[in-house]
Computed example of a mutant assay.
Amino acid sequence: MDYSEYIPGHLPLIISVPHGGRIFPPEIPDRKKNHPSVVKSNDLNTQAIGRELADKIKLYFKGMRPYLVINHLGRSKIDVNRPIKEGVEGKDTLVAWNDYHNFMQTAIKDVEINFGHGLLIDIHGHSHPEHFVEIGYVLSAETLSFPTSQINKPEIYSGSSIRALYTRKSSNIRFSDLLYGKTTSLGGRLQSHGYETVPSHIHQHPLNDEKYFHGGYCVRKYGSQHGEHVIDAIQIELPRTLRVGNKEKRSNFILALSESIAWFLKEYYG
C-alpha cells in the first residue's frame, strides 16, 4: 500500500505534512521508545490544514497550486521527520520513509528546474502553553535573542534554512528584517493578522521560559543552510488552539496563513 501522497504543483512552493497520518495498520509494529526524544502522538488536523492551505493559496495565483507531500501513516508507526534509525520500525516503514523522502526530493528537483529557487513549508502542531504560531528557520531561541547587530552577521544567516533567500536579497534587506520585520517577514505578516507569532515584530524571540521548536529533520535536511541548496525551508508549528475544536476559528486562521504565505512567495520568489 502507498502510505505517502504526492500532488505536483505549479508554484515554487512545497507544502509538506509529516505528522498528520491517520492510518495505523496492525501488521506494522509500533515504534519502540528506544530514543529519548521519540514522540508517537500525531499533530492533529495538520493533514486537513495542509490540504486546505494549498487550496486557499491557489486563489492568489489564478488556480496554480503548491506542491503537496503528505504522510498517511500514524506517528506511532513512522516518523518521516526523523532520520531512518529513529523514525522507522521494520521493512514496511522503511519503504514508506523512503517513499516520502523520494517525493520530497522529486518536488524539490522540479522546483529547482522550473524556477531556480523556491520554498518548502513544513507543517506541524504543538501544545505549548503560550499558544504561539512558531516559525522555525533552524535558529535556536537563544540565537533569536541576540541583538539585531549580531543577528545580521554572516555566521547567523549562513546557518539558517533561508540562507539562499537572504543571499539573493541581501542588497535590499537585512537578515533580521526577514526574520521578524513587521512588513518584511512571514511572522510579521501573520502577527499583523492578529495571530501571536514568534519570531515577529511583537515577539522577536521566545522568552527564557517559553518553549519553541526551531526546525526538525526535514527543514534541516532540505533547507538552504546547506550552501549548495537553492530551496529555502521553514517549519511552521501550529498551536493546538488553532487546530482542534472550533472549525470556524481554524478556517479563519488558514485564510490568514494562506494570505501570509502567498504574500511571502510573491514578495521574495517572483
Rank of each mutant, 00 (worst) to 15 (best):
N208A: 09
T143Y: 03
W97Q: 06
S41H: 12
H101R: 11
F213M: 15
I14A: 01
G215E: 03
G216N: 03
I123F: 00
G21C: 08
A96G: 03
N172L: 15
E5A: 02
H214R: 09
P199D: 04
T241E: 05
Y217P: 05
N152H: 11
P25K: 09
K249R: 14
A107M: 09
E259N: 13
S41A: 13
Q235W: 01
F132S: 00
G90I: 15
V95K: 08
Q105D: 12
E259Y: 08
N34Y: 12
R189H: 09
R82K: 08
G159R: 01
S4Q: 11
F115Y: 05
H72W: 08
G270P: 00
G245P: 05
V111C: 04
Y180P: 06
Y137V: 08
Q150E: 15
D209Y: 12
S200Q: 00
E210Q: 09
K247G: 03
Q191P: 07
E86F: 13
F264L: 11
Y67K: 00
K182I: 12
V219K: 01
G159K: 00
T197Y: 05
T183N: 12
G63S: 12
G159D: 07
P147V: 09
L68T: 04
R250M: 15
G136A: 01
Y67A: 04
S176Q: 05
L238Y: 03
H19L: 00
F24Q: 07
V80D: 03
P199N: 07
Q225Y: 10
D209R: 10
H35P: 03
E142N: 13
Y100T: 01
L242M: 05
S200W: 05
L144G: 02
P154G: 03
M104K: 08
Q47L: 13
P12L: 11
I84C: 04
Y222V: 09
S258C: 12
A96K: 01
N71P: 02
D99A: 10
P18I: 00
S140R: 04
S224K: 00
G216L: 02
N45T: 09
E267W: 09
H131P: 06
P206K: 08
Y222H: 10
L238P: 08
Q235E: 13
S251A: 15
K109P: 05
E248F: 14
L68R: 01
Y166W: 10
I151L: 13
S171M: 13
T184Y: 12
Y269V: 03
T183K: 12
Q204H: 13
Y60P: 03
S161M: 11
A107T: 02
E134Y: 09
K40H: 11
D79P: 04
E130R: 10
T183L: 11
V111S: 00
A141T: 09
G136C: 03
V80F: 05
R243E: 03
L120Q: 01
N81H: 07
